[in-house]
Structure formats: structure tokens, C-alpha cells
């Protein structure tokens, strides 16, 4: 590992806020991007299942 202490990992020589917020934003968008279609698919299948059951 490049950094010597955990403090350095977070602080990153004064750039920590920028670096970590960029990674946090990216991760949030990626999670939404991956999770949303899965949730929508499950919801559609559920809705169709109840529709087919009702005849």
C-alpha cells in the first residue's frame, strides 16, 4: 500500500475530500444503475404473475 497510516488514506495530502466524494458519487450511481433494472424486472414479473392468476 502506498499510504503509511489510515489517516493518510482519508486525508490524501489535502485531496481526500475530493477523491473520496468522487468515488462515493460514482459508486452510488453504479449501484442505482445495476439495481434499478433488476428491481423493475422483479416487479414486472410479480405484476404479470398476479394478472395471469386473475385470468
Amino acid at each position: 500500500m502506498y499510504f503509511e497510516s489510515l489517516y493518510e488514506v482519508f486525508f490524501m495530502g489535502g485531496h481526500g475530500t475530493y477523491v473520496w466524494s468522487a468515488y462515493l458519487f460514482t459508486s452510488s450511481v453504479i449501484l442505482i444503475m445495476v439495481w434499478l433494472p433488476m428491481a423493475r424486472l422483479r416487479r414486472s414479473i410479480k405484476r404479470l404473475a398476479s394478472k395471469f392468476k386473475a385470468g
Partner: peptide, 25 residues
């Protein structure tokens, strides 16, 4: 990739650690 870019590479000689944003940008 996150761990590699954030923790295991040296900082840029001019931009310091802010260049690590490159790995997502």
C-alpha cells in the same frame, strides 16, 4: 480497481492525490 487506484499507486508528481479521480472519471 478501486483499491488499486486509491491505495496502491503512487501520487502524480504534479497533481498529487487528486489524480486518483482519473480511475473513475
Amino acid at each position: 480497481g478501486y483499491a488499486w487506484g486509491l491505495l496502491f499507486t503512487a501520487p502524480d508528481f504534479r497533481q498529487g492525490n487528486s489524480y486518483r479521480i482519473m480511475y473513475v472519471h
